[in-house]
Amino acid sequence: MKALVEQMVKALVERPEDVKVEEKDEGHQLLVQVNVHESDIGKVIGKQGRTAKAIRSVVYAAAMKQNKRVRVDIVD
């Protein structure tokens, strides 16, 4: 999941070197935390959260194949 999210987010931002993706296993759930530069946060979230929702949808679909639950958090 980490590589998938990292690749998608790096394609969206102006500062791909500042993108950091961390993956934490919380028992029954996998947490993917995305850190980006504060000037790029709007690009990752998108208008009315549409880009963030699209990223989450792709990650959820990939996680369903592995029978896992995933939470994606986007922070600056």
Results as ranks from 00 to 15, higher is better:
residue 61 A to N: 08
residue 60 Y to Q: 15
residue 13 V to S: 08
residue 36 V to K: 11
residue 30 L to P: 06
residue 34 V to D: 05
residue 70 V to Y: 07
residue 34 V to K: 07
residue 68 K to Q: 14
residue 57 S to W: 00
residue 76 D to K: 13
residue 69 R to P: 05
residue 44 V to W: 08
residue 63 A to S: 09
residue 64 M to A: 12
residue 60 Y to G: 01
residue 59 V to R: 09
residue 58 V to K: 06
residue 33 Q to I: 08
residue 46 G to N: 06
residue 5 V to F: 07
residue 49 G to P: 03
residue 36 V to Y: 08
residue 8 M to F: 10
residue 39 S to Y: 06
residue 7 Q to W: 11
residue 32 V to H: 06
residue 17 E to K: 14
residue 12 L to Y: 05
residue 25 D to G: 06
residue 75 V to P: 04
residue 47 K to Q: 12
residue 8 M to G: 00
residue 66 Q to D: 14
residue 60 Y to P: 03
residue 23 E to L: 13
residue 13 V to L: 06
residue 4 L to G: 04
residue 20 K to P: 06
residue 18 D to P: 03
residue 25 D to S: 12
residue 39 S to E: 13
residue 25 D to C: 02
residue 16 P to E: 13
residue 46 G to R: 07
residue 6 E to R: 02
residue 2 K to Q: 14
residue 7 Q to K: 13
residue 63 A to C: 00
residue 67 N to E: 15
residue 2 K to P: 04
residue 33 Q to P: 02
residue 45 I to F: 10
residue 11 A to E: 10
residue 7 Q to G: 01
residue 76 D to S: 14
residue 38 E to W: 03
residue 68 K to S: 11
residue 39 S to R: 14
residue 69 R to A: 13
residue 27 G to D: 07
residue 27 G to F: 05
residue 21 V to L: 02
residue 24 K to D: 01
residue 76 D to R: 12
residue 10 K to E: 08
residue 4 L to V: 11
residue 33 Q to N: 07
residue 59 V to Y: 08
residue 48 Q to C: 01
residue 30 L to I: 15
residue 18 D to G: 04
residue 32 V to G: 05
residue 24 K to I: 10
residue 22 E to V: 09
residue 42 G to V: 05
residue 48 Q to A: 15
residue 41 I to R: 11
residue 59 V to P: 11
residue 29 Q to A: 10
residue 22 E to L: 11
residue 32 V to D: 08
residue 60 Y to T: 15
residue 18 D to Q: 12
residue 43 K to M: 11
residue 30 L to G: 01
residue 64 M to V: 03
residue 8 M to Y: 02
residue 43 K to H: 06
residue 31 L to M: 13
residue 7 Q to P: 00
residue 66 Q to W: 07
residue 53 K to T: 14
residue 15 R to M: 11
residue 1 M to T: 12
residue 68 K to P: 04
residue 60 Y to R: 15
residue 28 H to C: 04
residue 13 V to T: 01
residue 49 G to C: 05
residue 30 L to E: 11
residue 67 N to Q: 15
residue 63 A to E: 01
residue 9 V to L: 01
residue 21 V to P: 03
residue 51 T to C: 03
residue 43 K to Q: 10
residue 56 R to E: 05
residue 68 K to G: 00
residue 50 R to N: 07
residue 72 V to Q: 04
residue 63 A to G: 02
residue 55 I to P: 00
residue 65 K to R: 14
residue 10 K to M: 06
residue 49 G to Y: 02
residue 71 R to Q: 11
residue 9 V to Q: 00
residue 33 Q to G: 00
residue 17 E to R: 14
residue 29 Q to Y: 06
residue 33 Q to K: 15
residue 52 A to G: 06
residue 42 G to F: 09
residue 18 D to S: 14
residue 71 R to S: 06
residue 19 V to H: 03
residue 6 E to S: 11
residue 45 I to L: 10
residue 23 E to D: 11
residue 63 A to I: 05
residue 13 V to W: 03
residue 59 V to L: 10
residue 52 A to E: 03
residue 50 R to K: 15
residue 63 A to V: 00
